[in-house]
Design a protein around this nucleic acid. Sequence first.
RNA 1: GCGCCUGUAGCUCAGUAGGAUAGAGCAUCGGACUUCUAAUCCGGUUGUCGCAGGUUCGAUUCCUGCCAGGCGCGCCA
Length: 563
Amino acid sequence: MSEGIISTAVTSALHEALRKAQTDGQLRLAVWPSLVFDIPKRAEWGDLSTTVAMGLAKGEKRPPREIADVIASHLQWKTDLFDHVDVVPPGYINLTIKRDQWFRVLTEIEQQGTAYGDSTVRAGQKVLIEFVSANPTGPLHVGHGRGAAVGDALAHLLTRTGADVTREYYVNDVGTQVETLGKSVLMRVPQEGLGVELKDAPLPEGLYQGQYISEIATAFVESQPLPAMKNGEADVAEAGRFAKDLLLREILADLHQFNVRFDAVFEEHTLYDNGVVPDALDALRAKEYVYTSEEADWLATSRWGDDKDRVVKRANGQYTYFASDIAYHVHKFNRGFQQLINVWGADHHGYVPRMKAMIHALGYSENSFQVSLVQLVSLVRSGKPVAMSTRAGEFVTLREVMDEVGVDAARFFFLMRRSDTPLDFDLDLAQRKSNDNPVFYVQYAHARITSLFKMAQEQGMNVPSVSEVDLTLLGFPEELALVKKLAEYPELISESARCLEPHRVAYYLQDLAGLLHSYYYKHRILQVNASALTLARLVLMGAVQTVVRNGLTVLGVSAPETM
RNA sequence: GCGCCUGUAGCUCAGUAGGAUAGAGCAUCGGACUUCUAAUCCGGUUGUCGCAGGUUCGAUUCCUGCCAGGCGCGCCA
């Protein structure tokens, strides 16, 4: 786990203290405890707090208070790092860090810049993040948008922890959906003799109803000579392929506008073109994980906790969707990826057990495969829910939301909540230019600092480097609070990445922006007669700006210079 | 019926590899603009952490049961 400069120093001090206590025979430490710190809830409990003593009490067979005293006695003399060390019942060790130690963070940020917050936990690891993967049978809706924002943010997060990340979009272009798409398009072809002349009449049950189908139909006939369309079967396939390609292009264009770029688009049909599906199943059959029963082939997923075994090849000889998934994931591993992350709509959670079982069957460890489930998005306008009905083909598309509220607001709102809980997306709030709009509030912090720098420049001051200023001048509690918040950032990133929870970054940024606005209002930064103080404050502002920008970048939200 | 997720302030939600007196925003009420962006800030008010047991020195966090809501349970994709 990556840690900030302060936590690293404190951890090693604690480690040292424990070792000393052990060599002195004060603690036996049969099992070495994990050295974790919390940021205490109350200021009087210090900057960092640890409960190691309480955890050790059982093994040492001594009261936690005594153990804490022992540890504290070995920490006490590190006066360069600690201002003071307190032991509080029942056995907390509360550490107060020397003020000047905190300010080292500013040097750190200045040196690392856009890399501040990066770590090496996943260095050398090849990670594949598969997300969106919407079937190309219509435009993306807001739910897909949330998946796109989450997947992309996860990709950023893992990149920050050193991973070599590939973003991939999987296209289900085998099976009935593309066929249905083809049929739907043909029904809307505006030519007599081929389509129904009832242009706007509802299509038969099960076909795609949206207006976009008619548009595709028009494009389809224009794309090829009429006489070529003769026999039904071939036309359906042709129309389906045409529509799929067109819709996929539009989907990727929407995502492009949404600032999501995929490194690869993987089409299901290539698995069949290259025989990957039968190969994968044969390999599993060789391990006796695939068997035949009632004329169908099954994967024995129940061996690894699934409710029942799953059909991979139906009695009629057709492969199931699950068979494609098996082959696809074999293919992912064969391409050298060590960690596979799939971002799915939460309605697919029922597939997770069979997928995990499949990973086992393939011989990979369970934690090499993770699924991030993304819950539904409900749009709210003027306090009332916006009606959405997929059945009638009326749903709010990602494009509509993007056009209405902008890419930044959309992305931030999608990432504002834990992704596995439903999201109420307030369209009014997202457009508001005031402090109750979180994305605005955070971006404004960034723009405000830029504006400040501009003003400083007009007064003949450039933002100095840390080495040129006297940081001891930053004596206000608000200044220390900002620095402490900045120090949290590296751990925030590594923890968000470990838990696959980008929303933590959104919360952090709101906190940081709050501290900034509050400070800005309370203390004038550009002092007239105290240029040394002003310079020190400019350094602090520069650091805040760097971290705000880094955090927004993780979320895929821009950091504007002016607003 | 079985499985997964959720239940925290009036509303929207954080917080859980067990830790101290449970937090934020919104709403509401009351304040602050000769000012580097008031596009902002400051202050007041708000809780049986769904309910009931259990494990523990300590539970919002872990376990069990119940209640409520959402989703999922095909040789569909």
